[in-house]
Structure formats: C-alpha cells, structure tokens
Design a protein around this nucleic acid. Structure first.
Length: 104
DNA sequence: GACCTGACCAATT
DNA sequence: TAATTGGCCAGGT
C-alpha cells in the first residue's frame, strides 16, 4: 500500500463531528513527519467523496489557506454543519473536536 | 532526467 | 525558552 493510500485510509476513518490534524494522520499513516505528504495527498484528493479533507486541519485547528476545494470557506461551513464550533480566530477547539483524542 | 516546491509537524540545539 | 532544520512523496518546470 502506498503512503498516499494509507493517508487516505486514515482520513476516511475520521468520524462525523470530529476533526483530525495533519500530524495525527501522519502518525497514524506511519511516520509523523509525513504530515507534509498528508497535505499533498489531500491536495490531490482523488476521492473527495470518501475522503473528507475538510475534516483535516492543521495543529492550530485552523483550516489552511489553500483549503478552498469547494469554493472559499466551504469547508468551515461543512464542519459547522457537523456541529463543530469555530472561535473568533476561525479555529476549532481541538480539545473538544479532535479525533482520537481523550474524551472518547 | 534532476531539482524545487508544496494543505505540515515534531525533535533537536 | 525560542528558533531552526529535518523528513517524507509526488508532481511540475
């Protein structure tokens, strides 16, 4: 299995109403330093239908600038639709919404 | 065919 | 304690 496929597999495992960070996905995919590759993998995003890249945020809980895959802040809209709240900085409270984190 | 860049993060000095 | 570098994969020039 290629690294990309592993990344896609991890991203696909992100449950509804939760988000994950690049580093977290990278670690689950094999190496934590793959975070960069994770970003690139989501950049190509061959299967956006099964790969909710909008649930993937950086370590600050904020979406990236080039994240506009669906048209601007579309991804934040989708996350809000899942019940995820954004603060004034446009960040997500990772302590509450980060996947695979405590409080499970 | 080779080099550089690109949605990043964590460890080390 | 803060700042820097290192590392991974693939695509584009």
């Amino acid at each position: 299995m290629n690294t990309f496929e592993r990344i896609y597999e991890v991203v696909r495992q992100i449950p509804y109403g939760n988000v994950a960070t690049y580093g977290q996905i990278a670690q689950l995919a094999g190496n934590r330093r793959l975070a960069r590759v994770v970003g690139y993998a989501l950049h190509v995003n061959p299967d956006p239908d099964n790969i909710p890249c909008y649930r993937v945020v950086n370590r600050f809980g904020e979406v990236s600038d080039a994240f506009a895959f669906g048209g601007g802040n579309r991804q934040t809209e989708l996350l809000k639709s899942e019940g995820i709240e954004f603060d004034a900085d446009g960040r997500v409270d990772l302590n509450r919404y980060q996947w695979n984190r405590r409080a499970l």
